[in-house]
Nucleic acid binder design. Structure first.
Length: 263
DNA sequence: ATGGCCAATATGATTGGA
């Protein structure tokens, strides 16, 4: 079973690329971020035509997450607990059934946090604290769990082409990295790092300043696995070539293969 | 080679992204 994540930077602008990539990678479950549209205007039909069930949690203009699944949804829950006043559409969780039991998947769009001298950075840090608490509770279930999405966090200097450019950025500040580390230290496996120690593994290249042409990338889209999911990890990868397509997102898909089968 | 983008919005300038 393949589980993937992709920040598409507008689902309405990325329809052709998304369908082309789905045909190529053949994922069973896909977590999408930055869909940037309300649920009633989410283009479900071309995805349903490919055999996907579609769960959406969007809002006007910004943010927005979704999950596509060839397996039927047993449960779908929007919103990360811990702040009723938070109205950003950044979190969607689904449960599907496999031959060996439930698989839980969450699509995560963690706040960017820039500029750091505004309330955006404290909002990011509080969101990371909420994700920590949610994860600690979910791990107690001892289920296969995949937390997949755009974390807006560069875990280490090995995950950025030019670290000096990012030292004062909300994605790379020591506090951001410490909170990301605290999250994984709960017992989550960073799937890409579980299969490769290589540098130069990036998932985002800015549209500006020739970042793609210079390979000035960062790795901020992650699939974090609970121990029962990590035990089933076969391989993982990043579909870098998608960044060179016409009309690309600034992010590319990342994916894992799990030794799990649909029920 | 110093800069260079893209998307949404009652849109033609502003906001947000990373």
């Amino acid at each position: 079973m393949i589980v993937a994540t992709w920040n598409v930077n507008s689902i309405r602008q990325r329809g052709e690329n998304l369908v082309a990539w789905l045909r190529e990678r053949q994922p069973d479950i896909v977590c999408l971020q930055e869909t940037k549209t309300q649920d009633e205007s989410f283009p479900r039909e071309p995805l349903e035509a490919l055999g996907y069930n579609v769960a959406v949690h969007g809002q006007k203009t910004f943010n927005g997450v979704a999950i596509l699944s060839k397996l039927p949804f047993d449960e779908v829950t929007a919103r990360l607990p811990g702040d009723e006043a938070d109205d950003h559409a950044r979190f969607l969780e689904a449960v599907v059934s496999t031959k060996t039991g439930a698989l839980r998947v969450a699509s995560i769009y963690l706040p960017n946090g820039n500029p750091t001298n505004t309330d955006k950075y404290p909002y990011k840090l509080k969101w990371m604290d909420r994700l920590f608490k949610y994860t600690r509770e979910r791990l107690a279930l001892e289920e296969p769990l995949v937390l997949a999405g755009d974390y807006n966090a560069i875990p280490s200097g090995a995950d950025v082409h030019n670290p000096e450019l990012w030292v004062n950025d909300a994605l790379f500040l020591p506090t951001t990295r410490a909170k990301f580390r605290a999250l994984t230290n709960l017992g989550l496996t960073d799937a890409i790092r579980a299969v490769s120690d290589e540098g130069g593994l990036y998932t985002f290249w800015d549209y500006q300043a020739g970042a793609w042409q210079k390979n000035n990338g960062i790795r901020i889209d992650h699939l974090l696995l609970s121990p029962p999911a990590a035990d089933r990890l076969v391989t993982a990868g990043i579909d870098k070539h998608v960044r060179s397509w016409e009309k690309p997102s600034d992010h590319v898909p990342a994916w894992i293969e799990l030794a799990l089968e649909a029920r």
